[in-house]
Protein backbone atom coordinates (compact mmCIF):
# COMPACT_ATOMS: atom_id res chain seq x y z
CA UNK A 1 0.00 0.00 0.00
CA UNK A 2 2.78 2.34 0.95
CA UNK A 3 4.61 1.48 -2.26
CA UNK A 4 1.55 2.17 -4.32
CA UNK A 5 1.14 5.51 -2.65
CA UNK A 6 4.75 6.41 -3.40
CA UNK A 7 4.35 5.44 -7.03
CA UNK A 8 1.27 7.61 -7.30
CA UNK A 9 3.14 10.46 -5.71
CA UNK A 10 5.98 10.14 -8.17
CA UNK A 11 3.62 10.04 -11.12
CA UNK A 12 1.80 13.08 -9.83
CA UNK A 13 4.98 15.08 -9.35
CA UNK A 14 6.03 14.72 -12.99
CA UNK A 15 2.68 16.08 -14.08
CA UNK A 16 3.05 19.03 -11.76
CA UNK A 17 6.56 19.81 -13.02
CA UNK A 18 5.62 19.65 -16.68
CA UNK A 19 4.32 23.17 -17.06
CA UNK A 20 6.41 25.73 -15.32
CA UNK A 21 4.79 28.94 -16.35
CA UNK A 22 1.11 29.36 -15.69
CA UNK A 23 -1.17 31.31 -17.93
CA UNK A 24 -4.35 32.97 -16.83
CA UNK A 25 -7.34 32.69 -19.11
CA UNK A 26 -10.47 34.79 -19.02
CA UNK A 27 -12.54 31.90 -20.29
CA UNK A 28 -12.37 28.24 -19.17
CA UNK A 29 -13.10 27.11 -22.72
CA UNK A 30 -9.95 28.86 -23.92
CA UNK A 31 -7.97 27.19 -21.19
CA UNK A 32 -9.29 23.81 -22.32
CA UNK A 33 -8.33 24.63 -25.92
CA UNK A 34 -4.87 25.63 -24.79
CA UNK A 35 -4.42 22.39 -22.86
CA UNK A 36 -5.49 20.31 -25.86
CA UNK A 37 -3.17 22.25 -28.16
CA UNK A 38 -0.04 21.98 -26.03
CA UNK A 39 -0.65 18.25 -25.74
CA UNK A 40 -1.21 17.78 -29.47
CA UNK A 41 1.67 19.88 -30.75
CA UNK A 42 5.14 18.44 -30.87
CA UNK A 43 8.21 20.18 -29.55
CA UNK A 44 10.65 20.13 -32.46
CA UNK A 45 13.72 20.20 -30.26
CA UNK A 46 13.02 17.15 -28.13
CA UNK A 47 10.99 15.40 -30.74
CA UNK A 48 9.28 12.79 -28.63
CA UNK A 49 7.75 15.32 -26.30
CA UNK A 50 4.80 17.55 -26.82
CA UNK A 51 4.82 21.23 -25.96
CA UNK A 52 3.31 20.60 -22.56
CA UNK A 53 5.99 18.12 -21.51
CA UNK A 54 9.00 19.83 -22.97
CA UNK A 55 11.03 22.43 -21.22
CA UNK A 56 13.10 23.39 -24.24
CA UNK A 57 13.28 27.11 -24.98
CA UNK A 58 11.44 26.63 -28.23
CA UNK A 59 8.64 24.79 -26.42
CA UNK A 60 8.33 27.66 -23.97
CA UNK A 61 8.13 30.14 -26.83
CA UNK A 62 5.57 28.06 -28.68
CA UNK A 63 3.49 27.69 -25.53
CA UNK A 64 3.57 31.46 -25.15
CA UNK A 65 2.59 31.87 -28.79
CA UNK A 66 -0.22 29.34 -28.39
CA UNK A 67 -1.43 31.17 -25.30
CA UNK A 68 -1.41 34.52 -27.07
CA UNK A 69 -3.37 33.15 -30.00
CA UNK A 70 -5.92 31.31 -27.89
CA UNK A 71 -6.37 34.33 -25.66
CA UNK A 72 -6.91 36.48 -28.75
CA UNK A 73 -9.83 34.21 -29.55
CA UNK A 74 -8.38 32.10 -32.35
CA UNK A 75 -9.89 28.66 -32.73
CA UNK A 76 -7.91 25.46 -32.22
CA UNK A 77 -7.81 24.83 -35.97
CA UNK A 78 -6.40 28.28 -36.61
CA UNK A 79 -3.60 27.75 -34.10
CA UNK A 80 -2.79 24.34 -35.62
CA UNK A 81 -2.79 25.92 -39.09
CA UNK A 82 -0.38 28.60 -37.88
CA UNK A 83 2.03 25.99 -36.52
CA UNK A 84 1.80 23.71 -39.56
CA UNK A 85 2.50 26.67 -41.87
CA UNK A 86 5.76 27.25 -40.01
CA UNK A 87 6.95 23.84 -38.92
CA UNK A 88 5.18 21.48 -41.30
CA UNK A 89 3.02 18.46 -40.51
CA UNK A 90 5.75 17.17 -38.24
CA UNK A 91 4.59 19.55 -35.52
CA UNK A 92 1.41 17.47 -35.18
CA UNK A 93 1.55 14.47 -32.92
CA UNK A 94 -1.35 12.93 -34.79
CA UNK A 95 -0.49 12.97 -38.49
CA UNK A 96 -3.29 14.23 -40.76
CA UNK A 97 -4.86 11.91 -43.32
CA UNK A 98 -3.56 13.08 -46.70
CA UNK A 99 -1.95 11.58 -49.79
CA UNK A 100 1.57 11.33 -48.37
CA UNK A 101 0.34 9.70 -45.16
CA UNK A 102 -1.94 7.15 -46.85
CA UNK A 103 0.56 4.33 -46.35
CA UNK A 104 0.84 5.26 -42.69
CA UNK A 105 -2.91 5.23 -42.08
CA UNK A 106 -3.82 2.46 -44.52
CA UNK A 107 -0.85 0.17 -43.88
CA UNK A 108 -2.18 -1.52 -40.74
CA UNK A 109 -5.53 -2.23 -42.42
CA UNK A 110 -3.84 -3.69 -45.48
CA UNK A 111 -1.65 -5.91 -43.31
CA UNK A 112 -4.75 -6.95 -41.36
CA UNK A 113 -6.60 -7.87 -44.56
CA UNK A 114 -3.63 -9.89 -45.79
CA UNK A 115 -3.47 -11.68 -42.45
CA UNK A 116 -7.18 -12.55 -42.62
CA UNK A 117 -6.83 -13.85 -46.18
CA UNK A 118 -3.87 -16.02 -45.20
CA UNK A 119 -5.82 -17.32 -42.22
CA UNK A 120 -8.85 -18.19 -44.36
CA UNK A 121 -6.64 -20.01 -46.81
CA UNK A 122 -5.00 -22.01 -44.07
CA UNK A 123 -8.33 -23.00 -42.56
CA UNK A 124 -9.76 -24.00 -45.96
CA UNK A 125 -6.76 -26.16 -46.70
CA UNK A 126 -6.95 -28.22 -43.58
CA UNK A 127 -9.82 -30.68 -44.37
CA UNK A 128 -8.38 -31.58 -47.78
CA UNK A 129 -5.33 -32.85 -45.98
CA UNK A 130 -7.11 -36.08 -44.94
CA UNK A 131 -4.13 -38.43 -44.78
CA UNK A 132 -4.30 -38.71 -41.05
CA UNK A 133 -8.06 -39.30 -40.94
CA UNK A 134 -9.19 -42.92 -40.52
CA UNK A 135 -10.43 -44.85 -43.48
CA UNK A 136 -13.80 -46.61 -43.21
CA UNK A 137 -12.05 -49.89 -42.55
CA UNK A 138 -9.87 -48.48 -39.79
CA UNK A 139 -12.83 -46.79 -38.20
CA UNK A 140 -14.77 -50.02 -37.97
CA UNK A 141 -11.76 -51.76 -36.49
CA UNK A 142 -11.38 -49.03 -33.90
CA UNK A 143 -15.04 -49.27 -32.99
CA UNK A 144 -14.68 -53.02 -32.62
CA UNK A 145 -11.72 -52.64 -30.28
CA UNK A 146 -13.51 -50.09 -28.18
CA UNK A 147 -16.61 -52.27 -27.89
CA UNK A 148 -14.47 -55.26 -26.95
CA UNK A 149 -12.92 -53.29 -24.13
CA UNK A 150 -16.27 -52.27 -22.68
CA UNK A 151 -17.56 -55.84 -22.86
CA UNK A 152 -14.52 -57.14 -21.01
CA UNK A 153 -15.31 -54.81 -18.14
Amino acid sequence: MKKLFLICLMAASTVVCANIETYKFDDPRKEADYQVLVHELRCLVCQNQNLADSNAELAQDLRRKTYEMVEKGLSKDEVVEYMVARYGDFVLYKPPLQTNTLALWGGPFIIFIIAVLVLIRMIRRRPTNSDHLLSEEQRQRAEQLLNQQTEEK
Binding site: D61, R86, Y87
Partner: peptide, 13 residues
Protein backbone atom coordinates in the same frame (compact mmCIF):
# COMPACT_ATOMS: atom_id res chain seq x y z
CA UNK B 1 15.51 39.02 -29.20
CA UNK B 2 12.26 37.28 -28.24
CA UNK B 3 12.39 34.63 -30.97
CA UNK B 4 9.18 35.68 -32.70
CA UNK B 5 10.82 36.03 -36.11
CA UNK B 6 12.37 32.62 -35.49
CA UNK B 7 8.91 31.13 -34.99
CA UNK B 8 7.69 32.82 -38.18
CA UNK B 9 10.57 31.24 -40.08
CA UNK B 10 10.00 27.85 -38.50
CA UNK B 11 13.39 27.86 -36.79
CA UNK B 12 13.70 24.97 -34.36
CA UNK B 13 17.41 24.44 -34.06
Amino acid sequence: YDGNAGIDWGVYG
